[in-house]
Write a protein that binds this DNA or RNA. Structure first.
Lengths: 207, 207
DNA sequence: GCATTAGGATAGAGCCACTATCCAAGCCCT
DNA sequence: AGGGCTTGGATAGTGGCTCTATCCTAATGC
């Protein structure tokens, strides 16, 4: 198929496809001659992945490029998942410098929950965030961390159990990224609802 | 004090302060004459609130304007909290049209958890999000919702209990917005860590 | 034979939160 | 009283990002 058909099948505008080609997100088609190129089903799949990562998950071009490169370089799936998680996580962490050694409170959480003991981006992000909270004078008690981490352990248990390993790497990325995103959002929204409920109760009691 | 001193005290550039004045986020100072105006401690407080909402919480100008207007119009605190929550929540929900009646699965969660039965933005957001997940063919089992909501109920319990009601409305907004944001982020990061841990375990088992 | 289309290159749009430049009016200091 | 400096207001520009529109030439297909 040619560009126009690729556009129609995927619902992505021809101009955007050209943009993705320019940015190196989408591999060039097989050039038939100077003004035509042929695209395959692989291109459709890849394009849909790109589109979902942009529109649903909200990744930027640079992040998508990085992940696709890893996939194309044949990185191990667990590494790929870690990379996907890192960028999905990056979305709303207002770049915390993360330099310092600090408290390493995340390590305590990991031990407490008996999670596998490997340093990761998630762990660094957690440490950085705990330091941010500290610098803002927002107390984080051991009890709170215990409650939160227990809750997230439960959530992740249900969560991971519900996913099955897909065949193609593109599909792995798609399900992982979209899954992480929508589950994170779900948790956030439930938290908001729970907080609102508790706040209402409290205001009723106080009044 | 004049603009320059206001800038020095708050650490916000004079140009940005002018911008906030133009945008109506910061009330104009008392004009002494055609080229001078005097600012008060109220201005410092307000400016710090604006700055925190921008830099820490990541709200945009429009959202901040809305919240400040409510505060200045003397809206009830619970309404104010709801508004703050709405915008903090808005941050990463890729505008889900929310139009349809749909499944109203959030109502079931509310009943299940015994939360106060008032429709809210959080509830609409949850319903919209559940519909989105449905449309993406991502299953949300009752068990999953139960686990998630139970976890968030626990989290919110610890969370709300730890906050004390501040005196000024500006302070209320500040602590509420920053608190919601950093706690949400904390939950998200713990979730990421938990998911990574579970994923590692699973890959080890599978391999 | 000739309108139509592909693909590549390049430029422009639109958004957002600033940031920089001007300018006249006014202050302080000598 | 004169002159350099600051103030507040208006206006325009910047930078990052993701597209989107316009051109152009080569090729297609009826």
């Amino acid at each position: 198929m040619q560009l126009k058909e690729l556009s129609e099948q995927s619902g992505v505008s021809a101009a955007s496809i050209k943009y993705y080609l320019r940015e190196g997100l989408l591999p060039a088609g097989d050039a038939i001659n100077a003004t035509r190129a042929r695209y395959s089903a692989r291109h459709v799949e890849r394009l849909e992945l790109i589109h979902a990562l942009r529109r649903i998950v909200g990744l930027n071009i640079e992040q998508i490029r990085g992940i696709l490169k890893m996939a194309d370089d044949g990185a191990p799936r667990l590494d790929l998942l870690a990379a996907v998680q890192r960028v999905v996580l990056e979305l709303d962490s207002v770049a915390t410098a993360d330099g310092g050694v600090g408290t390493r409170a995340a390590d305590a959480v990991v031990r407490l929950r008996g999670w596998p003991d490997s340093p990761s981006d998630a762990r660094n992000a957690l440490n950085a965030h705990l330091e941010l909270m500290e610098s803002l004078n927002i107390p984080v008690s051991g009890e709170l961390l215990d409650t939160y981490s227990k809750a997230m352990d439960d959530v992740a248990g249900v969560d991971i159990a519900a996913t099955t390993a897909p065949d193609s790497v593109d599909e792995l990325i798609l399900t992982a990224a979209v899954g992480m995103h929508v589950h994170s959002q779900l948790v956030l929204k439930l938290l908001a609802l729970a907080q609102a409920s508790h706040a209402i109760r409290r205001y009723e009691r106080d009044a």
